[in-house]
Amino acid sequence: MPKGMVVIDKDRCKGCGLCVETCPFGVLVISPEFNRYGYNVATMGAPEKCTGCGMCAQMCPDAALDVYRAVKEGV
C-alpha cells in the first residue's frame, strides 16, 4: 500500500506540469487524456511512489490537488 495519494480535480487541472516538475519521486505525469476544457491533465503515473508529502499541491496554481497520507498501522 502506498504511503500517500494525490486526488486530482481533473476539471480544474490545466496541465501546466508544475506538480510534475515539483514532485521529488516522479509520481505525477501529464496524461494524454483531455478534460472537458481541452487540457491534458495530471495523473498519478507511479502511485506506489507517493509519500503524501504535499509538495505538488503547494505548487498547484489551480488548487486542483488534494493530498492524503496513509495512517500508520497500529496508530
Binding site: 500500500m1 500517500g4 495519494m5 480535480d9 503524501g52 508529502c53 504535499g54 499541491a57 503547494q58 488548487a63 490537488l65 488534494d66 493530498v67 492524503y68 497520507r69 496513509a70 495512517v71
Partner: peptide, 9 residues
C-alpha cells in the same frame, strides 16, 4: 486508512 495532508481551502 488515509488522512488529508492538503485540501483545497
Amino acid at each position: 486508512g488515509f488522512v488529508p495532508v492538503y485540501t483545497r481551502p
